[in-house]
């Protein structure tokens, strides 16, 4: 049995061309699940939490409505951070060929699914335990 959170994140990577890595973290910056290859998930989670907090504060300050995503664009790709409920966040890393329109559309649905999964997730079950179960299964 594959972990439901990881399955959602991998499905997002399958649906949107250009996504290379995803991670789910708490607003504290602690990793919950990571589907990453060459990126250190702990560092990614901590930086994403900080950038989301800054972006939300910025959105309030300039009065441009509710923050939809905190996006970092560089010459080689993108990092987008989405709030998942009030306690978690989703980080999406993509290459420069990202279909950003499709990401906007698909990420919203994924965030809702992740939020629902987290809301009823048993508290004692953690990332590595789930990983072991997935590997054993």
């Amino acid at each position: 049995m594959e972990d439901a959170l990881l399955a959602e994140m991998r499905a997002l990577r399958d649906r949107v061309i250009g996504i290379t890595d995803t991670a789910l973290a708490s607003r504290d910056g602690l990793i919950i699940r990571a589907d990453t290859a060459d990126i250190h998930p702990d560092t990614l989670a901590a930086l994403a939490a900080a950038s989301l907090g800054l972006a939300q504060r910025m959105a309030v300050e300039v009065g441009k409505g509710t923050l939809r995503a905190a996006v970092t664009r560089s010459s080689g790709g993108y990092v987008a951070v989405y709030a998942v409920g009030s306690g978690a966040l989703l980080v999406v890393v993509a290459d420069v060929g990202l279909d950003s329109v499709r990401l906007d559309r698909e990420a919203r649905a994924t965030v809702e699914s992740l939020e629902a999964l987290l809301a009823r997730k048993p508290s004692g079950r953690t990332g590595t335990q789930a990983g072991r179960q997935a590997a054993a299964g």
Partner: peptide
């Protein structure tokens, strides 16, 4: 700690990775 590099767990690696 409370750090968990889940990507290092088997669940975070693709088949064939």
């Amino acid at each position: 700690g409370s750090r968990s590099p889940a990507a290092r767990s088997p669940a975070a690696t693709e088949p064939g990775s």
